[in-house]
């Protein structure tokens, strides 16, 4: 049922890209593959009938979190006179692998979009409305508790980060 050609392709791309993430020695190279892996995951969500989750995956992970990663990588290299070495990190050659994988994803996505959805197929599309109704209906308490989860993360990060800046008591 869901084991059709696009799904298999997305899954293979995701697995291969993730493998490349963990085997790259340079952080930036790993990040490039990580973006591809997240995009592949988003495509899998879409094929499974969860376009909302797919879009969130792209916006939150491939978008926001990746920017954060790139920021951290850049900040960690601050003040080192190794611009030359940084230049060698992003050569056209490093783009080839992720580029090919991303092109594969795009082709498969276009193929999947072009195909007419099968009538009464096993895939039930879960749209934004259903997600919202679940979140603010039976799971509204979880949304509230998730805010406490974020608060815990915030306070912990505040506590740890305050002293990294070298401040003592406020």
């Amino acid at each position: 049922m869901i084991l059709n050609a696009p799904f298999l392709l997305f899954a293979l791309v995701a697995v291969w890209a993730t493998f490349m993430v963990v085997t790259r020695a340079v952080a930036i190279h790993a990040l490039l593959y990580l973006v591809v892996a997240l995009l592949a995951l988003a495509c899998i969500f879409d094929v499974l009938g969860a376009p909302f989750a797919a879009i969130l995956e792209v916006i939150v992970y491939a978008g926001a979190i990746m920017v954060l990663f790139v920021f951290v990588v850049m900040m960690l290299n601050l003040g080192r006179p190794d611009r030359l070495r940084e230049n060698t990190w992003i050569t056209p050659r490093t783009w080839v692998g992720p580029g090919i994988l991303a092109a594969l994803l795009l082709a498969a996505l276009a193929d999947a979009l072009a195909m007419a959805p099968p009538d009464g197929g096993p895939v039930v599309v879960i749209d934004t409305r259903q997600v919202g109704l679940a979140l603010y209906g039976p799971y509204v308490l979880m949304v509230e508790l998730a805010s406490f989860l974020l608060l815990a993360g915030l306070v912990s990060a505040f506590r740890i980060g305050r002293h990294i800046r070298g401040e003592d008591a406020p």
Partner: peptide, 19 residues
């Protein structure tokens, strides 16, 4: 879902306390 949210709240607060 409830279990996971609770567990992560516990883990994240512990992180701040340990450090």
């Amino acid at each position: 879902v409830a279990f996971f949210v609770g567990l992560e709240t516990l883990s994240l607060s512990l992180l701040g306390l340990i450090a």
